[in-house]
Amino acid sequence: MVGRIFDIQRFCTHDGPGIRTTVFFKGCNLRCAWCHNPESQSSEKQILFHMEKCTGCGRCISPSFDAESFICFNGAKELCGKDYTADEVLGEILKDKMFYDNSNGGVTFSGGECMLQIDFLAEILRLCKENGIRTAVDTAGNVPFEYFERILEYTDLFLYDIKCFDSDKHKLYTGAGNELILENLKRLLTRTQGVWIRIPIIPTVNDTIKEMKSIKSFLSSCKSPERIELLPYHTFGESKYATINRTARTFSTPDQSKIELLKAVFDE
């Protein structure tokens, strides 16, 4: 069994407590308009093309071109997505163990939607626990609840996205309604305390007090999560769209005072 991974980032501080190693799974079943990892969406391996680095040498348009073995000398074309066995991923994670142990950190599985590769995810989570590594799963929750049940035992923390409360709007911006997502969250909270709710703040989409109040009122009908975080939209992902020949949908970045205002809704 292999998992398809498109990146392993080390020394992260934004995906859970302490210092973390974040493993990014390839493939997602949502298409969020603001996605900052557009190369994560397709579950297929893809060639990313960095036009600015291309010298037009022409090696990549020869008939013998083969994406798997081809090497662009200039780094203009790179293959995104690599298949790993669970042991290989574990090996990569263990390299950092000494550095996150004291910080209460660990590994975070993100994506894409890591839960879509549930068999692989369950396996690697189990291996991590066997090796004494704290685990987190970053999910949008748009999967059958059985998937959660399969990994609950091995997962210390869920980073769970709520993008907006209204299902039609959710569908408009992400391609899917949110009934399953919210229901899963409610059920998940009855099973574990280790959940951080994460709300991306996207101007013109969900950056209103009304929206926050709806989410808050939904959450008050659930068992309470460990933490609620607001993640302001940022533009770091925009340049990646060109590499997969797509046009980024751009949003403005919310200012700090707005974030404080929205945060205050949850502190009331």
């Binding site: 020394f11 501080t13 210092i19 000494m98 550095f99 996150y100 004291n102 910080s103 950190g105």
Partner: peptide
């Protein structure tokens, strides 16, 4: 970089 990150680097490096 955070202070916590620098501390983690020192800690992990010395332990090894």
């Amino acid at each position: 970089v955070t202070v916590e990150q620098i501390m983690a680097l020192i800690d992990g490096y010395i332990k090894q």
